[in-house]
């Protein structure tokens, strides 16, 4: 049992949760994740560790209620507990001094970006961070990222905050500007965003690293469910990743595999919302 120390709703469907997990807090490095299972019968959900306090023995997780299981996790209040938290899994981010780097975060991927951007800055890099979301309500962690980045650019699709449009527009401007062109780009977010960024940097031959979040079960290399094509090779995101050279990632294959359970997930999500009273519409779980 892993105690939930705090649980704050920081934007629509997104919660910041601090969980007591002393061993993980001690051994985790930026870029690693945990697999969480709320109770008996629940799914195993991979979640990036955003931060850790080895002294207090806590880890910080950002959880977006995107499916039934994540919905149930975020509705567990502080003082409650999570049955299983296993980790830290995956390889730590490779943090080196590049010079100038751009970190791009889309949606909840921004939470994954936070420890990465912080570590890059601590390694002496000049960090420009670009974050984007549908609207101002979905922009997260902008204060924290502003603090740790040399510059922060915010975009929203509806223009309610920062520049109107997608993260790719300011990125294109920076890439075109010889004064700002980076030595490396880091991308974490929806697959189409990461794919678009990889295309933009490929032609300029700028090293680009994407953090992938495919379907996972065990997170230890045992099931093969998290496999993705990297160049000509099948790699397992949980043990070989989660970060890969974005220019080699088969993003189309990845997003296709991630849609394997879409039908089931929608049904379960509705059922979970119904169970916790978020919707008054009758719902049936198949």
């Amino acid at each position: 049992m892993f105690k939930i120390i705090s649980n704050d709703n920081i934007s629509e469907n997104l919660h910041k949760m601090v969980v007591l997990a002393p061993r993980i807090a001690r051994s985790r490095k930026p870029g690693q994740f945990v697999i969480v299972r709320l109770t008996e019968g629940e799914e195993r959900i991979p979640l990036t560790i955003s931060d850790a306090d080895p002294e207090a023995g806590t880890i910080t997780l950002f959880v977006q209620a995107a499916g039934a299981s994540t919905r149930n996790i975020v509705s567990t209040e502080a003082g409650g507990s999570i049955r299983d938290v296993a980790g830290p899994l995956g390889n730590p981010s490779r943090i080196i001094f590049w010079g100038r780097v751009i970190c791009v975060g889309g949606g909840v991927g921004t939470a994954v970006l936070l420890p990465l951007a912080r570590a890059l800055r601590e390694a002496g890099n000049d960090v420009t961070t670009i974050i984007g979301a549908r609207s101002s309500r979905h922009i997260i962690l902008s204060d924290e990222l502003k603090r740790i980045s040399n510059a922060l650019i915010v975009t929203t699709e509806d223009g309610s905050l920062g520049t109107k449009g997608f993260v790719t527009t300011p990125l294109a401007n920076l890439l075109a500007d010889p004064e700002h062109v980076p030595q490396a780009v880091f991308a974490v977010g929806p697959v189409p965003m990461m794919k678009a960024i990889a295309e933009m940097t490929r032609i300029k031959a700028i090293e680009t690293i994407a953090s992938l979040n495919p379907i996972m079960i065990d997170g230890t290399g045992m099931c093969g469910g998290c496999r993705v094509m990297i160049g000509e090779e099948i790699r397992f995101a949980c043990v070989d990743g989660p970060e890969f050279n974005a220019h080699l990632v088969d993003f189309d294959g990845l997003s296709d595999r991630m849609s394997s359970y879409r039908a089931e997930e929608t049904l379960n999500f509705k059922a979970a919302e119904c169970k916790i009273g978020l919707t008054t519409k009758p719902c049936v779980k198949s």
Partner: peptide, 14 residues
């Protein structure tokens, strides 16, 4: 091998 509906035995059984 990476099509939807292709499982490794361990994933299917787990």
């Amino acid at each position: 091998e990476n099509l939807k509906g292709v499982y490794a035995a361990n994933e299917f059984l787990t």
